[in-house]
Structure formats: structure tokens, C-alpha cells
Simulated assay, not measured.
Amino acid sequence: MEAAIDRIMQTYDLLLNRTAAASDEARAKVTEYVATLVEAGETDPHRLTVCGLTYLRQLDGSNDPVKGGYTGL
């Protein structure tokens, strides 16, 4: 689980330029989320990494198509 969290945070830090406090907060949130996935039976570290990155991007709104300029037209 720790390897997946480390990979998530390394990748997420490359995507966004954030303060150390924001990075620590994101790590705490994704650690709790990944722990929930592991408790539910997910063991694949690659899948945990993808799910964790998706979770963080949903939290910060960076994968919102409307914010990204997509209008559907």
C-alpha cells in the first residue's frame, strides 16, 4: 500500500505545483482512500495507483470537463 501511495504522490506532484501543506493534506486523504480500497479487497498496486490519482483529481476538480473548457459542442 505504501508503494502505491508514494507513486500516487510522486505523479500528482508532477501534475500540480502545490505547497508542502497541500501535499501533506492530499497524502492524508489519499492514504485513507487507498486503505479503504485495500480493506475492500483491492491488492493490485497499479490499480490502487490509478484509483488514487483519479480520487485526488476529483477532489481538486482538475478532471472536470467544464472547468477544462469542454462545452460539449
Rank of each mutant, 00 (worst) to 15 (best):
K67C: 00
M1G: 12
T36D: 11
T49C: 07
D44F: 06
T11W: 00
A22W: 05
M1T: 12
L73R: 08
T49K: 10
S62F: 01
R57H: 09
L16C: 08
G52S: 03
G72D: 06
L15D: 13
T19V: 03
V66D: 03
T49Q: 14
Y12A: 11
A21L: 11
A40N: 15
T43H: 11
C51M: 11
L59C: 08
E25K: 13
T11N: 10
L48V: 03
C51F: 12
N17T: 10
A35H: 13
Y55S: 02
L73S: 10
A3W: 07
D64H: 00
K67I: 00
R7Q: 14
V50W: 02
V30W: 00
E42Q: 11
G69C: 05
A20D: 10
T43R: 13
G52I: 03
L53H: 02
V38L: 04
Y12I: 00
D13Q: 14
D60N: 13
D64R: 00
S23N: 08
L56P: 00
H46I: 14
R57D: 01
T36A: 13
L48D: 06
Q58F: 01
D60W: 00
R18S: 06
T43W: 02
P65T: 01
E39M: 09
G72M: 06
M9I: 12
V34P: 00
T31E: 13
R57W: 05
D44L: 07
R18E: 10
V50L: 11
D44C: 09
L53N: 05
E32W: 04
R47P: 03
V66N: 09
D24G: 06
R7L: 09
R27E: 15
Y70S: 01
N17W: 06
L56A: 03
D24H: 07
T71H: 04
Y55Q: 02
P65F: 01
Y55K: 03
I8E: 06
R27Q: 14
A35S: 15
Y55I: 01
S62G: 10
A28W: 07
A26G: 03
L73F: 06
E42Y: 08
A3S: 09
G72E: 04
L14I: 08
A3C: 04
E39H: 13
A3R: 10
E32C: 08
A28V: 12
L15K: 15
T31N: 03
T36P: 01
R27N: 08
L73M: 06
A4G: 04
D44E: 14
G69K: 07
K67D: 00
A35W: 08
D44Q: 11
T49F: 05
A28M: 15
M9N: 14
D6N: 14
